[in-house]
Amino acid sequence: MDLEDQGLLKRVIDEQGTENVIVVLGSPDEESARVYAETVTTGDPSWAGPLAGVSLRLPVYHILEDEVRQEIDPAVYEEHVAMMEMVLDTPEITKAVRDVREKGSDLD
C-alpha cells in the first residue's frame, strides 16, 4: 500500500480505535488484495510504511466475497459490483483475503 495512504489510515485508527471497525477492499487482483489485507492485519509486508510492524488485526473482507454479498441488498450489489465479479478473478482474490483474515484478524 502507498506509504502516504498508510499514514492516512493510521491516523484514522489512532482517532477511532479498532473496536467495531472492519476493512472492505475492492482490489483488482490477488496480489494487491493480499498486500492490503496483510497491511491492516499483521502490518505492512514491505516494511516500508507507517504500518510496518503495526498489528491492527482488523477483520478484512473483499467486496466480492460470498459472505459479504449475502448481507448486501441484492439490487444494490447487482448495480454496483456484479459486472466486476465477472471481470475479476473472483475466486483467487477472495481466497487471498480470506486466508489473511483467518490468520491475522481478531474476528468476533
Binding site: 489510515l9 477511532q16 467495531n20 476493512v23 475492492g26 494487491s32 459472505e67 459490483v81
Partner: peptide, 21 residues
C-alpha cells in the same frame, strides 16, 4: 458480520471503486 460496523473502505479504480462499495 457487516451490520452496524464502522468500515474502512479501500477501493481501487481498476477493481471496485470505494463509492460503489
Amino acid at each position: 458480520m457487516l451490520r452496524g460496523k464502522k468500515a474502512i473502505i479501500i477501493g481501487e479504480r481498476d477493481g471496485v471503486a470505494s463509492p460503489a462499495i
